[in-house]
Amino acid sequence: MRIGIIGAGPGGLTCARILQKHGIPVTVYERDPHPRARDQGGTLDLHTGDGQLALREAGLLDEFFALARPEGQEMRKLDTAGRILEHHIPAEGELFKPEIDRGLLRRLLLDSLEPGTVQWGRTLARASGSGELHFADGTTVETDLVIGADGAWSRVRPAVSAAVPQYSGITFLEAWFEDVDNAHPDLADLVGQGGAMAADGERCLFAQRNGGDHIRVYLVQRLPADWIGSSDTAEIRARLLDAFSAWSPRLVRMITDNDGPYVDRPLFALPVPHTWKHTPTVTLLGDAAHLMPPLGVGVNLAMLDAAELALALAGSATVGEAVAAYEKTMLPRSAEMARLLENGAEGLLDAPADEGYLPFLPESEEKTATPR
């Protein structure tokens, strides 16, 4: 069978790896010109029941644990004065959802594939319902199955669905901090080895430790999608200082002391539920199929989708039967999760509750970006 996967993210690469383990040839088409073309985003927590399950099917679970950071499961909930209200410290040997940098996960998956599996610099213009891939360079490839693993602004999705992502009303502004133990020791101490968050009902700060002594901070607010208006760092910082003026100076350093410019990431989501009429030659996985707020489930669902689709293809008599079996499970599951998370972005702004910590993680630049 001729299978073409669009997108070399965790979902697409996981699907390709499991297909190859079962002796099924596959080609992955990726618009980036090479694996290091751009920053891959922050840290990801892979859960035992989905992301880790997919890596087990891929034969990569031990390699994942060798790279992952179990200490990243630490979570601190703070008030706006910077006081710790709740503190989750992972137990010895706790591996429910260890963290791994997105770039490391991608490299692990890429290195597991047969040479030449990924064709770089291949920007898809459109996919047809008959399985044809039309690329921006004018070339065309015929397949028996197109798998859209190309994220929020999927070029494959229009072949089966007219749905487009809608702005959620919530925006993230990302700030980076490098060499934090030396250059930003107070921030490093405040965040710990995992994440720390504070909210006041109108705005939220979430700081997440990444590998390589790096912290990413996400400033969450309810604003119009085009609120930022300017790329001037000093001007943006002044507006943020006004918005967070009642917060403690220690927390405000997450706004003022960042290394480099801010990155604007308005949150988009697909309609709930998002379904489509079965087409035996085209299907979707991950954000292309069920774009949701970044609340710690996106990459896990994408990798579970990928594993189930690959196993269905390995175990079915025809491609069409495999796609039907996969969608019969995936679509209800993603619809249920999307309903649970439909207004989850608003929940990020809520002032801390008396109990329970919020393990959300801004997973992907794709779900918080405009079309490229």
Rank of each mutant, 00 (worst) to 15 (best):
Q166F: 00
W153N: 13
A234H: 12
V141G: 06
V160S: 09
V146K: 11
G212Q: 13
G169T: 06
Q221A: 05
V191T: 15
A125Y: 12
A183W: 03
D111M: 04
L133W: 02
R203V: 03
L110C: 00
S230Q: 12
A198D: 01
A207G: 13
G148S: 12
L109T: 01
D181C: 08
S128L: 01
D226K: 09
L133Q: 00
E174T: 12
A127T: 02
T123S: 15
T233I: 07
F135I: 00
V164P: 04
M197V: 08
H214M: 11
G194T: 02
A183E: 14
G212F: 06
G212K: 08
S231Q: 14
T140G: 00
L113R: 07
P185D: 12
A196L: 00
A188I: 01
W227Q: 00
E202A: 14
G129K: 06
S128D: 10
G121T: 00
A152V: 06
S130W: 07
Y167L: 09
L187P: 09
A234Y: 08
R126Y: 14
C204H: 04
L223M: 13
C204A: 15
A188F: 06
G201S: 08
G194K: 03
D150Q: 09
L173C: 07
G195P: 02
L190F: 05
L145C: 09
G192N: 10
A149E: 11
S168V: 03
R122H: 09
L108H: 13
L173N: 08
E142H: 13
R203E: 05
L223Y: 02
H184L: 02
F172P: 04
L205W: 05
G194M: 01
G121H: 08
R107M: 12
